[in-house]
Design a protein around this nucleic acid. Structure first.
Lengths: 357, 357
DNA sequence: ATATTTAGTGCAATCGATTACATCAAATCT
DNA sequence: AGATTTGATGTAATCGATTGCACTAAATAT
């Protein structure tokens, strides 16, 4: 039964004693083909179980309808979620997504780009590897006039479309929330200062403190690798200190969680004695007790915006676009770990600001 | 500078005053081409920034070097991890992966398959949608002689290559472990009985109990939707009862976690008073306190096995293969929540059994 | 009645790489 | 020396769909 041979438009043409061009046009609903033949062709195509060969079409039209996405790893919730967002949008189009993982390696990233270019993708969305500092391999993409959009990670020096989250604002909101809850002595768990996101988060924290005329003492800011274990360690240290802070804003959910563990063990009430806010809205933040207030990075929305930006670019490819930086507004997800008072307002404004760079 | 036009083998040929066929052969290291021309061609190709068009090659050779992967959603750790495994293996080959999400919808799954077939993929790996009961759309793939491998979810009625986890064995190991720790009155949190994995897990539990001559009383088995909240509720109920069980084996990490929360609040010691084991080894199991012992489903390995099975199939495509069912051996990850005694043995045997169906 | 549209198809080139077969010169053999 | 093999490259068809241009007959305009 399985006729290994796939039917092509030529097979249909032969059967109907017309030419392949007519079949092609009929299937694509070309205005110059009579309704009668259209109907006939479509019916015959179905009978012969015809399935278009998009590779042939891609070759002819110079358009593959493939989008390449390069991420460090799919195995992390944030990136999987971005991909999910991308697909949500592209699902309504003819585009398919090819996923490549760089494992945060520059070499791998280069070979990913090479493979995607060879596959004639129509666009590339990428979150570059940690190792990447030089962007010449990305410029190859632009030279080929293939739309490139960076997401999550970006660098101002490399001018290209980008969709990122506003870490500064996220931290600001988190700190402001703690202040609204009546906290005054707020400790900040910060990350390595050479990483821009951690610098931005610290700045957001400091700015919120200053605006409320709270002093940002040096010893309130503690740097670490922000892992679970560090959170535990830092909490122990805090317990040794003279004055207990009334809140902690951690630049990472993991460190926040580690600290929570220790406080709970020492019968310190959360949020009454110490309120805690994390960053990233990892899935476990909703699962632990009390729920951990955290800054959501809108990973899915980030993917959606990226894909939509690409589609927009297609529409008017005529003009030479200035690269656009889309900054997503992070959302503070308020849970019990920081809620000393009755909730006052819900922050759900995620509309991005468009900034031309 | 950006010469929009891409260079082809014809451009190289023209420049060197030879034919495109020679260029093609030289680039592919054909034995009948002299070393001199090979060198020259390769050098010129580099100079002209030549990048092969794999679409053209794919059309000619009838081979796209694309693999389609269909999953319910990439946005769940298990599936992301499987994809990760698939890519780990295929990275060392020329294959690229196209990801499609079915959202557990049959319609979406059908259109995914259609798109992948049109893209001329060389193979399809799929975990079918929950809605799927009829497999005729999958048979279309086989009719086209395209290798199809199911993973995670499978159905004996549909005879096709499959890579799955042994839920029965996982449950058996979990229960056996609890018994080894000295537990005798072990409660089982089970899922809906119409879902095969939950049936299998219950069977594993019962079998382990029987082998140790422990009675499986009806009231030891509690069914629910296994969500976090259900775990909490069931724990409350258990606390109301006359006799406290000395262990719980939950078919889900979430329910296990919910129960843990309640027990901790009521000052019941884990694992001293009640030992707890979950299922799936979700990432949070390592984060909570105490760490939750759980059954790991080897999601990444599942992806690796799937990809390797595909590569094996390619090698001897001559013979008409009998579908092979690869059953992965789940691994019990022992953490504090169940460890009453010093650890005795480490289970790390994940070699699959091959079963011809 | 002749000229001009218009509707409906066919022809043939094209996208870029691959490959069976042909060709031709140099090298080796008898 | 003439025959045969070998090495290196060219010719041309092919993969399947698309599309500018050409063409015919019917419809409409002058």
């Amino acid at each position: 039964m399985s006729s290994n041979k796939r039917t092509t438009i030529h097979d249909i043409a032969k059967k109907l004693d017309i030419t392949a061009s007519t079949v092609s046009r009929a299937l694509k609903d070309h205005p110059r083909i009579s309704d009668a033949t259209k109907e006939l062709v479509i019916k015959t195509a179905k009978e012969m179980n015809y399935q278009p060969n998009s590779i042939a079409a891609a070759l002819r039209r110079g358009k593959s309808n493939l989008i390449g996405v390069i991420i460090p790893t799919i195995d992390r919730n944030f990136f999987a979620s971005v991909v999910r967002g991308v697909e949500d949008v592209l699902n309504n189009t003819n585009y398919n997504v090819i996923i490549c993982q760089s494992n945060d390696s520059l070499e791998k990233e280069k070979s990913n780009i090479k493979a995607l270019l060879e596959a004639q993708v129509d666009g590339i969305f990428a979150s570059y590897a940690k190792e990447t500092t030089d962007f010449t391999h990305y410029e190859d993409i632009l030279k080929r006039d293939i739309p490139l959009i960076l997401f999550d990670r970006m660098q101002d020096a490399f001018e290209v479309d980008a969709v990122v989250i506003d870490d500064y604002l996220g931290a600001y909101k988190a700190t402001e929330h703690l202040i609204e809850q009546g906290c005054e002595r707020i400790v900040h768990f910060g990350g390595p200062e050479n990483v821009s996101i951690y610098r931005d988060r610290r700045r957001g924290y400091e700015e919120a403190m200053k605006r409320s005329h709270l002093s940002v003492e040096e010893d309130l800011i503690i740097h670490s690798d922000l892992k679970l274990e560090s959170g535990r360690r830092l909490a122990e240290e805090i317990l040794q200190g003279d004055v207990l802070p009334d809140a902690i804003f951690s630049a990472s959910d993991y460190a926040a969680m580690g600290a929570m563990e220790i406080f709970k063990k020492n019968d310190i009430n959360i949020p009454q004695d110490i309120a805690i806010v994390g960053f990233s809205n990892e899935s476990f933040t909703a699962l632990i007790d009390p729920g951990l207030t955290s800054v959501d990075q809108h990973s899915k929305k980030m993917g959606q915006f990226t894909a939509n930006l690409f589609l927009d670019r297609l529409k008017d490819k005529s003009k030479d676009h200035t690269p656009t930086k889309t900054v997503l507004n992070p959302e503070l997800i308020i849970r019990s770990s920081s809620l000393k008072q009755v909730k006052e307002h819900q922050d759900d404004n995620i509309e991005p600001e468009q900034i031309n760079t």
